[in-house]
Write a protein that binds this DNA or RNA. Structure first.
Lengths: 375, 375
DNA sequence: CTGAAAGCGCTTACAG
DNA sequence: CTGAAAGCGCTTACAG
């Protein structure tokens, strides 16, 4: 039983079923306007075929009923969901959130909505999430992979869901990807330190099972190997100590470094033959934690020890000593990933697979300086 | 024309239409299993009514076809979308992202997906976003309002979309809300500074049109008023200077403060009668920026000037001098907001409106100390 | 316990 | 230019 009643405090006609209010559908609009549902749909989709007077009466009915088109039903019918799934490693990491802001910017232009979730770097979560996205028939997925085999990602691509890898250098044939050359970035950081005369370097890396940490490890070693070859004739060899932290966080870095300093296991910043004169951190958060630990022990930056980060999050300029770091263009990365996803389904270029790699650059600020004579 | 073919590199039966692969539907599963679609649906929804042998054959068909149930269609039919819309002021603000992590945790338990977007503190964006969420018939919306009139929020509530206000003290009759008593928090911060003997205080607030900034302003003034009454007999009056920054960011704070120091407009940290001996910052990011500006000018914290933040983001412990701050339980706030939303639609308690207010607490760390005699 | 039918709310050819 | 009908992929009473 459907009836109409006009609310008292409202100009609108309110549809009710057995007294309960009911959201109006195209059918209700059509009835009120005295046209067919097809015509209502044509008005909703701005088809020029509709006569102006008919259009007007339909629009009047829409307003009167307070009709709001159900875009979920529209999506089911057209097969085009407005949702794009985004799975990152960690919602609270500024790197991903600045990237997400870039994604959002690009997606908004297309009227897309972002379904954002974090995998917490666990393959199980990633698999579950990707399957949820696929079941929802999202328009596509932006994924920072944890599972390097990309098993589930391939699974949903086979199901017809385009996937763009974010912050991943993998180049599978059926997924686009956007990445920064992490190895090169780490190389540049070390080269910067070597050029300042630092020969004893501490490398605070992230967890060794994370790809980003692995690549930065490779870059560090490559830079040192190259430099060692060129420096064969000099007396002082390059010494590297690498520590894998439990996470890419300031907390992990601070407590680890504090322990090392207190335990005198590493004579960081002390003018001895054994002490590192520079620290390269695998991301800015680690560098911030390291800076805190160092300053708490009275070790000066950059006089006693130079410090280099990675990412260039906005806080890198705000640390007590502004941070020299390897800049990743986070917002552009996110924007580019979203762009590749949207382009991959444009009618003009279906399945347009592309692998975009950005080259990072060293931003020199105040946390690095020449290794002093005493060092 | 529909045909079946068995792929070579796959055990599965692949459905095709005119040579193009086609995703299997319940109908295809039903045909292969030799049952009706209703039975397939019963299996998918684990209804105990299905005979075990029938269930088995349906499950076999599902596996063989690689069937993935379309949850968007399911949502349309059942009227229950898995999506919850979340609209925050700024994706790159750690406060919101730590809260989002809490929301995600609660929503995941319910199998919900988070549609996350930022309004950038603009009412137009907020209105647009809320309408998109409503058109998608999301299960509910978590909103940090920019538009204090809540016009669009009310609009979608009338359409049947539950809205829970996040980080908002508004108590409309038809929306739950979760908030922290910002006024109280600011009061506590000032009381802490007064108790340390600081009488000349600089207050670096956020933009004055933002509700959080307004409430913290009220709290600051209230604390000062109360203290002034109690101190009427003492000689030294309490002096407050408030500056409204353009945004709640470290950058804004640092440049503003640097300008003040360089221009000698405020003798911050100088032992004169006019210099503030303490700074209260409306959030931790502002405090981080302030810390940088102060240290860059050789002003010591807390010896020359005490510094208090607000939020207790994880970085607050990682600043060069660890930050005394007013803690908001961000993750719990997010969790509680999601919880209220989900409960509001439980059959047991429909439309269960609740207003949760959390009380903040001062976390004393190293950035505050007693006002020294010279001050 | 299972099947046939109706329907969630829309859009899209196809007639007229 | 507009209407009637079929269909996107599910689920849910209702018969049997």
């Amino acid at each position: 039983m459907t009836s109409k009643s006009t609310g008292l405090n409202d100009e609108r006609t309110v549809l009710t079923v057995n007294g309960l209010p009911k959201r109006p559908r195209v059918k209700d609009v059509a009835e009120l306007a005295g046209v067919s549902v097809g015509t209502v749909s044509n008005v909703l989709n701005s088809r020029s075929s509709v006569r102006p007077e008919v259009r007007n009466s339909v629009e009047a009915a829409i307003t009167e009923l307070g009709f709001v088109r159900n875009t979920a039903a529209q999506a089911l019918r057209t097969g085009l969901s407005p949702f794009v799934g985004v799975a990152v490693l960690d919602l609270t990491n500024p790197f991903f959130m600045e990237a997400a802001a870039g994604m959002e910017e690009r997606l908004n232009n297309e009227g897309c909505l972002m379904a954002l979730a974090s995998t917490n770097s666990e393959a199980d979560n990633e698999a579950h999430l990707l399957r949820s996205f696929a079941a929802q028939r999202v328009r596509g997925v932006l994924l920072t992979p944890t599972d390097s085999s990309l098993t589930t990602a391939h699974e949903i691509v086979r199901q017809g869901i385009p996937v763009v890898l974010f912050d991943s250098p993998a180049t599978p044939p059926n997924m686009s990807s956007v990445s920064v050359n992490d190895q090169k970035g780490a190389e540049l950081a070390i080269e910067h330190l070597l050029s300042l005369g630092h020969h004893r370097i501490l490398f605070l890396n992230g967890p060794s099972h994370v790809r980003q940490a692995q690549d930065r490890h490779l870059g560090v070693n490559r830079a040192i190997k190259l430099a060692s070859q060129n420096l064969q004739h000099t007396i002082s060899p390059i010494e590297l100590t690498e520590i894998s932290l439990a996470s890419f966080t300031a907390n992990a870095a601070r407590s680890e470094l504090q322990e090392l300093i207190v335990g005198s296991k590493l004579q960081v910043g002390r003018p001895t033959q054994l002490a590192p004169t520079a620290i390269f951190c695998a991301n800015d958060l680690i560098a911030i934690g390291a800076m805190t630990a160092l300053q708490a022990s009275g070790i000066r930056i950059p006089e006693d020890v130079s410090l280099v980060g990675f990412d260039d999050i906005s806080l890198a300029q705000q640390t007590s000593v502004s941070l020299t770091t390897v800049r990743q263009p986070m917002k552009e990365l996110g924007w580019a990933a979203a762009d590749l996803l949207l382009n991959s389904q444009s009618p003009s270029a279906p399945k347009n697979i592309e692998h975009k790699s950005f080259t990072p650059e060293v931003i020199v600020r105040d946390s690095t300086a020449e290794a002093s004579a005493s060092q």
